[in-house]
Design a protein around this nucleic acid. Sequence first.
DNA 1: AAATATACGTTGTAATTACAACAAATTTTG
DNA 2: CAAAATTTGTTGTAATTACAACGTATATTT
Lengths: 226, 226
Amino acid sequence: MHTDMNVIQSIELFSGICAENIGIILNCAQSNPQTFAEGEYIIKPNTELNKIAIVVSGKAHVVSEDFWGNRTIISEVGEGEIFGEAHAIVLYEIPTYGVVAQCPTTVLFLDAECIHTPCKEMAACHTQLLNNLLRILARKNISYMQKMDHISKRSTRQKLLSYFSEQMNKHHSYEFDIPFNRQQLADYLSVDRSAMSSELSKMQKDGLIRYNLNHFELLGNDYHEA
Amino acid sequence: MHTDMNVIQSIELFSGICAENIGIILNCAQSNPQTFAEGEYIIKPNTELNKIAIVVSGKAHVVSEDFWGNRTIISEVGEGEIFGEAHAIVLYEIPTYGVVAQCPTTVLFLDAECIHTPCKEMAACHTQLLNNLLRILARKNISYMQKMDHISKRSTRQKLLSYFSEQMNKHHSYEFDIPFNRQQLADYLSVDRSAMSSELSKMQKDGLIRYNLNHFELLGNDYHEA
DNA sequence: AAATATACGTTGTAATTACAACAAATTTTG
DNA sequence: CAAAATTTGTTGTAATTACAACGTATATTT
């Protein structure tokens, strides 16, 4: 129970909950920290999951493996982030994905039971915990929807335009910096990096965009030309 | 307030909540039913959203439109289902998608405020409401993750195999019926129908699968041959 | 500042895909 | 049951993509 309390107290799941109540939750949820070596499964695929996992330190990949053994990275979870919460809440679904430590990683497992039927001591902070979980899930939901929206486009150009369109809205400007390098952007959009790079070139040549490294500018039909 | 109470009482959002308390919620959330014509925007893109929408009757599409006017269907919501809940919970995000009625559709809007700071009358059922919302969001989350996992594969064949792999796990069997027709499956996997159809043929010829209409059978390397 | 590592852009080729057009099969309707 | 409508399968072609290989630029390390 002596895992880095500084980290624990600052994660979103416990925001607005005092240290004392966090202690009560950890106690009620029978939390136990575990450390995993690089490459080790934190969660094995196709295994029942009724715990919410908090990454106290380290980093892990949520990966999916199909019937034929092909592996893909679904998402990355870092310090302070949680995973498994969706499956811990929807009890009867068994996750097909696994979670693999990318370096020595310490994880705290919270029994989801205390979400559904909290003990008396938790009454004071249970609602806050539910609200936090709700917000985390909602935010993940939104980002999944956005990503799906981009990926579901048929061509690399359309995927890029869809992503740029989102960035434009987010920044309220035709110009913006993106938070990815080329490889990360390609991974995010599920396309090949070099093919994407060359498509970006074509788009610039076609007068759709202008860019330099991470800085992009959208050129609508007849807007703000120089 | 006289919208079909039969539908309202049977939706998942209100499961485990008695009719009386549902009345309290609807009252506290200043719910007001509205009816929209086919093709009409229920929610316009890029508009702040702080209400949870319940489809009382009809059907709607969640669509995204980019800077250049291209439209894509993100998901479909039918009777008893809700939408907008993620954005109503994460207040500061503005949805880029819109929601368009596919036929005359009646929708009940619940002010999300009563989720965050419920009135006294709601105390008795607020936790149940939070739990329901949590479960709905978690389930959507899981299905989004699965879909992303399929779509992010690079080739049509891999997308299909990923989907079949999921179906196999779900049915605990190498044989199963899928709930889509060809066009729907193609839309779900974001590929062209006819290209997918011909890829299915090839996969059958290559001995990976066997199928007839909606019935599919996976042929692992050396498993259960006849 | 040289050496190294990392990120980015370019090009050619083989493979895959979208698209269109049509044929075959299946389901619905009168 | 026949006709019509819908769904599914097939094929060819033009366009797009993945992949590999390599050159260049930028950042980091020593």
